[in-house]
Each structure stands twice: as C-alpha cells, then as structure tokens.
Design a protein around this nucleic acid. Structure first.
Lengths: 244, 244
DNA sequence: AAGTGGTCTAGACCACTAT
DNA sequence: TAGTGGTCTAGACCACTTA
C-alpha cells in the first residue's frame, strides 16, 4: 500500500496528485487523464471518489471531458483582447479587435419601449414607471454570438435608425441636446444565466464578464447598458493616459 | 404521479423546478431548500439525483449549503465598487472605496530581485534572463485579505522604500527619468488558484477578477502587475471622459 | 466490441446543527 | 436525538467514441 499522509477526503488525494502533475508539466495540455476505472485501480478508491475527483478537476478548469472518449488536460484558452476605449479615440467600433484576428463580425438588434424596472430607473435617475427604449443587440463573430448587450435610454431621444451603428449613440444623443461627457463601465464576473449559456454556447463552468456601461451628459445619465461577454474567450482592455 | 414532460436527466427536473421557484420569488433569499431525503420523496428520484441537483444549484450560485443544517437560497451578494482610476485624478489610493464603506484597510509587501520569467520578460519587453524586482502585496479590509498584487519592475529603478505607498510608483519612476504616460489594465475572469482561495477565503465556486496592469513611459513598459480580486465581493469601475 | 463519461439506484458512515 | 450535508462503496445502464 502507498503511504497515506492525510486523513483528508479520499477524492482530494486523487485531485491533489493529478493537479500537481498538470501544474508541473508532467501532464502537458491535451494529455489524457486516467479514466474512472483506472483511477479506482490506481489509487485504490471507489468509483464515486474517482468520479468526484474528475468532476472537481473539471470544475477547476484543469481538465475537460470528451464524452465517450476521456478526460484531457485543458489547454489554456487564448483570451482575445476587447479594447473598451482608447485615448484620443473613444470610438472603438465593435469588431475592431475581432477583425484584427481575422474574424468576421456581424450584429443585429431589436428595440421596444417598455416601463423602466426599479433597477434601470435608478441607473437612469428616472421615476419608476417612466418609459424607456430597450434595445437588445446580439454581436456575432463568424456567425456565432460572442456578446450580448441590452441598452436602455429614456424614451424621447428617438429610436436608433434601423441601420444605425451601435456606437452612433453619441451623435444621436448630441442631436437631441445631450452632449455625452463621460462613459463609465463597471465590470464584474458572474455565472451566466441559462439563456446566456445557450446563446453564447458557453462550456459548463465558464463565467461571463458583465459590464454595466453608462453614458453621462454632465451629471445626467442618458443611456445605460448591460454587456455580457464570455469569460473564457475575451479580456477587456482599458487604457488610461496620465495628465497629457 | 406528477405529469412528466421531458426525457431529460432526472436531476434536471429537480434543478429546473427549484430554479424556477428561486427566480420567480416563490423561494425568497435565505429560504430553506428541501433536503436530499425530502427531494427523493417529493420528486420520486434516488439519493444520487437529489444530491446532484443540489450540487448543480450550488454551482450555479443559486443556493448555499450550511453543513449539518441544510441548503438555503443565496442572497445576491453586494459588489463593492473599486474605482480603478478617475478623470483628473489618476491617483486613487487603494482603500478609498473600502474606507467609504467603513472598512479599515491595511497592506503589507515583500520585495525580491528575481530573473524574469518568459511571460514577464515579454510584458516588460526585456531579454529573458533580465533581473526584475518582484513585489508581492497583500491588501486587507478589516484585517482580512481582499486583494493580492504581484508587481514586476526592471531592476534598477530602485526598490520601493520600506514605507513607500503602493501608488508612489509613478513618482519613483519619474525620479529615475521614466515619466509615466499611460496605464493599461486588462481584465479577465478565472478560477482562483488554491493558494488564492486560501488567502482570500473564497467560497467554493467563486471566480476572481484578474487585472494585468502595465505602466508605460512612452512606448516602454516600466512596470507590470497581476492584481487578483475576489469576484464575489467587488466590481471594477472605469470612468472615461470624452474629448473634454 | 471495448472503453468512456453521464447518469442513476440503494444503501452507508461521519461530523455537524438544531431542538 | 433526529436531521442534514459531505463523503463513499458497489454496482448498473446508456449514448457515445474509438478502433
């Protein structure tokens, strides 16, 4: 019998051993992980413990399962940069980063006027039942959805023209006398909602980056959006010039 | 017998039913979820399926387990804002946001000179075996670690003074002739490493926000950091003024 | 045809919580 | 003391991949 050092749960012995091999390179990316049956024999544990160990390693993102085939060391995914804005050029069109990677980008949009929810009313500093224009965007890279955006504006700035580009908002607001002075983005990470998982075809266990973006005209918020980005494919880039 | 609509896995029936009750409010925050034994009876499934359903709901962040007591609907956590910078004031000291919440902040630091890893060498545009000053910070809120930072500078800008504040870097670089012109932050979400989970006392299943920050002097990178922030407690705030 | 992961059953023991 | 979640065993069936 192998020397056993700890009284920890059995499955953690298996997890720790495989994790170590992955991190120190003995198991390189795409290398096969022992199957449930092999783990029970090799470590002298039951099927449940072996199964649980594989599940934990998968949840940690260290291995991926191909059903019918086996578990494999997951290659670290490449995170494409999404430049949220640039100095002297706030007008980064969606898709510039993707296009630089040779990815063809498209998008579509649906607008409707609805009553503001309490959350949106607070973000736009409106009284609650105020009407707002809600616009849903789906951005696609090579045909597959890669970003979901839900935008809210107080009704009255006019709907976006059917062929208006997403970033033309600043001009349209300006035409209605609201000169945009600041954009604020709040970033957090969360578990995708089931609908988001479906649309974005997210692998189990991946998170999304959720960006709450608000356009300000002076001290008045004139547009706010919820932007949902797959966390396993993208990183957000913020550049900030210092007293130029 | 209740009407069964789908041939999906059994545990998904349980998951879908409980998820619906949580999302539509029938099960409010902190409400108890039926136990494994109750689920087996109520839905006519085995213990394994009941157990699996609870595990999935916990992984989705909808419920939390209190061992020995039961599962409960998880109250949506409040995400404290961390302002990464502000217009006309890039000098946001760490802890300003926390202090505004009545949280007392402290930090400590250890520096050493090491050889640059390939990754760090690339980020600092150095030849590989170049010496760099590595500084590890632990930031604490009310005594508990809330942010981990690992900073790298080419050796030769002098070590930070023992009592130098973290943000004094810009001044120290300037004194060595490197005028910082831009800060770039790249944000992604990932699973915490085990050491990070321990230090930050992260609940299972939570992600971290990983900020790769680089200070630039013209086209030369003079400092780069990896900043690790618990994803269940914070959101990052980026404000961007438009052609002022 | 053999092996694999996903799912599932029917139990069980333990440490912990609640009463 | 009863109930709970965390862990664990010993098996099993299925859809799928691989050869």
């Amino acid at each position: 019998m192998a020397p056993v050092a700890s009284s920890d749960p059995v499955y953690l012995r298996v997890v720790a051993d495989i994790r170590r091999q992955i991190l120190d390179g003995s198991l390189p990316p795409d290398a096969p992980i022992p199957s449930r049956a092999q783990l029970t024999r090799r470590y002298g544990v039951g099927e449940t413990a072996a199964r649980h160990a594989l599940r934990v390693l998968a949840a940690e993102g260290l291995i991926v399962a191909r059903i019918g085939s086996g578990h494999y060391v997951r290659a670290k995914p490449v995170l494409l940069p999404l430049h949220r804005w640039r100095f002297h050029d706030h007008h980064v069109p969606f898709g510039a980063d993707l296009h630089a990677q040779g990815i063809r980008t498209t998008w579509d949009r649906r607008s409707e006027v609805v009553g503001a929810t309490p959350d949106i009313a607070q973000r736009l500093r409106l009284e609650e039942p105020a009407p707002v224009t809600l616009t849903r965007y789906v951005f696609r890279g090579d045909g597959k959805p890669v970003q979901l955006t839900t935008s809210y504006e107080p009704a009255g700035f006019g709907e976006p023209a059917p062929d208006e580009a997403p970033r033309a908002l600043i001009g349209r607001m300006s035409a209605h006398g609201a000169k945009i002075t600041e954009v604020v983005e709040e970033v957090h990470t969360r578990i995708p909602e089931p609908a988001e998982s479906d649309l974005l075809a997210l692998p189990a266990g991946t998170h999304v980056l959720h960006v709450e973006r608000t356009h300000w005209a002076g001290d008045r918020p004139v547009e706010t959006s919820d932007i949902v980005i797959p966390g396993d494919r993208f990183r957000l880039v913020y550049a900030h010039p210092l007293h130029p």
